[in-house]
Amino acid sequence: MQERLQKILASAGIASRRAAEQIITSGRVKVNGEVVTELGSKADPDKDAITVDGNPVHKQRSKVYILLFKPSGYMTTLKDPEGRPVVTDLLKGVTERVYPVGRLDYNTEGLLLLTNDGEWANRLMHPRHEVEKEYHVRVRGMVTSGQVAMLANGVELDDGMTAPAKVSIIKASDNNTWLSIAIHEGRYRQVRRMCEAVSLSVVRLKRARYGNLDLNGLNPGQYRLLTDIEVQGLLTGENVPRAEKRSNVKKIIKKPTPKTAG
């Protein structure tokens, strides 16, 4: 049966639906030897020979959903032209080809989801689902109530006004302040840019929660598989019993040593 190319790529675990569209328009996809760049193009995955960058696209065998505690110093990509370590280097024992759901900056740590289910990833990242993501941010100096209010009400960035956020002070000293900032948007470097917009300098940034999931039971560099209830709960907003989260933690015995850049 014929399907849109971007859906075929997403179902095969190549990329999310949105990223698959970029792959197609950039001329990296061939169907029966012919380059296809039109997003409306269709193919039959059972009959047509579909390739991305010359590699055959196969039907996906099993779907995998992973929660990783990303350390600072890893790229949220599948490969890096500068030779820096990437997040999939940490997934020892995972044989399926997975990719990140959204991104965390090189110097940002915390909760990162990876999967080979393109439809699920696309739904999570779509703005209409408004999946809340909570960040813990350490900034230099004291934070005023006025700055907290501005962040909460929305600030003007170069790509438009941010939506209202949930902002609170976790702890503060004369030198540093820890903030909790919860947003449901997913703009590029959004939390850092929000802080810069109200004259706050970010020292450390960590994603502590994604929807109903947190980092409980994991150390930096460790990951675990999501349960079926957690996978569905991210889309429905239902909470998952903490005991179930703990029981599914997969420990990585030794944290991989970051590769030397270059």
Rank of each mutant, 00 (worst) to 15 (best):
V131M: 09
G233W: 05
G93Y: 01
K251T: 14
N116T: 13
N219Y: 00
L67C: 00
K206M: 15
I169H: 01
L113H: 04
V249H: 00
V198E: 02
M1F: 07
Q147T: 11
H136R: 13
Y65C: 08
S199I: 07
G211A: 11
R97W: 03
Q222W: 01
A208R: 04
L151Q: 11
Q147N: 09
G221N: 05
N175H: 13
V240Q: 03
S11T: 09
I181E: 06
V231N: 05
G262N: 09
L67Q: 06
L104M: 08
R138L: 14
L218S: 04
K92Q: 07
T51Y: 00
L234G: 08
R140I: 14
I252C: 08
V155K: 06
A121M: 05
S11Y: 14
E109F: 01
G146Q: 14
R224W: 01
L114P: 11
G110Q: 04
E230V: 13
E119V: 13
F69K: 08
K70Y: 03
I23D: 10
E3G: 09
I66S: 07
G186V: 13
N116C: 05
R193C: 06
V36H: 00
T257Y: 00
L225A: 10
R189I: 13
H129C: 07
G221W: 01
P71T: 08
A261E: 14
A208S: 07
R209K: 13
T77G: 00
M1Y: 11
L39N: 09
M1C: 12
V64L: 10
A49N: 12
L226Q: 05
I50T: 10
P241W: 04
R192Y: 02
R246M: 11
V240W: 03
P45T: 11
T236L: 05
G33C: 13
G102A: 05
L67G: 05
E230C: 12
G27Y: 01
V249A: 02
V29N: 03
L114E: 03
Q222F: 00
V52W: 04
D214R: 07
V64R: 05
P56S: 05
E134S: 12
L68S: 02
G141W: 04
D105R: 03
G217Q: 00
R123Y: 00
W120V: 12
K59F: 02
L91G: 06
K79W: 00
R61Q: 15
A20E: 12
A261H: 06
N248A: 15
V131A: 07
T25C: 00
G154Y: 07
S168D: 08
E34L: 12
P220V: 06
G221Q: 04
A49E: 15
R187G: 03
G186I: 12
D159I: 07
L179H: 06
Q2L: 12
G118I: 09
L104E: 04
K59P: 14
I229Q: 14
R4D: 11
V148Y: 04
M1D: 15
V64I: 15
V143E: 04
R84T: 09
V86S: 02
L225T: 08
